[in-house]
């Protein structure tokens, strides 16, 4: 219990003292996670919509595979991205290993299946409701998907926020491809892992509480921006 209390105190001290290193790794965490989630949403939301409105031979298998990929082990993703971006790998020439870009790529791979799967589920239900109307109005497939994404935007927010939740707390993959380099690729989760391994439990816990607070703050901010729960009939 003392450790927990010390952690709270440490978190308070770091925030009140406006610790420069803390601000840097917090901003980097946000940068990496929000970029990855934005790209994953740009890919995943239309893909989920397309899966919901399109019938093709292997559709059920594709959905099953996407659902299975939600449980993709981050460490394995990190390892694969590491190999791809290492000097001997096919993308080694880009020199992206141990950079925030490589961390973003790893997080996109982890988050995209989650966004596709949840958005597919949400859009499928809306599609069942809108099907006759959109067919009757002769909407093209692109228009159907756009309509379903727009009208299902509040449900789809859940998909993106679930992706954010997974990405902000992710440590395995970004540790491997980022390397946890101070002032370069260190983020909150890798800093927590480092401080824990050094035995600085109070600092690690303090960073942990800040991470939780950050996740909650981003969720609340997005809900407020999109006015969720204020127009429940939509």
């Amino acid at each position: 219990m003392n450790e927990l209390f010390s952690g709270f105190l440490e978190a308070g001290r770091l925030i009140i003292s406006l610790d420069g290193d803390l601000a840097e790794i917090t901003l980097r965490s946000l940068h990496v996670t929000l970029t990855a989630v934005a790209i994953a949403s740009a890919i995943g939301l239309p893909a989920g919509g397309w899966l919901a409105v399109t019938r093709f031979r292997w559709r059920r298998h594709v959905i099953a595979v996407v659902n299975a990929l939600m449980g993709l082990p981050p460490v394995v993703v990190g390892l694969i991205v590491y190999i791809l971006f290492s000097r001997a790998g096919p993308f080694g020439v880009l020199g992206l290993l141990f950079t925030p870009t490589a961390m973003i790529v790893a997080q996109i791979i982890i988050v995209t299946p989650l966004v596709i799967s949840i958005s597919h589920q949400a859009i499928r239900e809306l599609w069942a409701e809108y099907h006759d109307l959109l067919i009757s109005m002769n909407a093209s497939k692109r228009q159907r998907i756009a309509t379903l994404i727009y009208d299902g935007r509040r449900a789809l927010l859940t998909a993106s926020l679930a992706g954010f939740g997974r990405a902000i707390g992710e440590v395995g993959a970004i540790m491997i491809v980022g390397g946890n380099i101070d002032h370069a690729t260190r983020v909150l989760t890798t800093a927590i892992a480092l401080e824990t391994s050094k035995g600085n439990f109070s600092l690690a816990l303090g960073l942990g509480f800040i991470l939780i607070g950050l996740a909650v703050a981003v969720n609340v901010a997005i809900h407020n921006l999109l006015r969720t729960e204020r127009a429940s009939l939509w």
């Binding site: 409701e129 809108y130 006759d132 109307l133 299902g152 009939l233 939509w234």
Partner: peptide
Amino acid sequence: FQTPIIMRR
């Protein structure tokens, strides 16, 4: 339609 399909708009 008999039961109007109302969009979320």
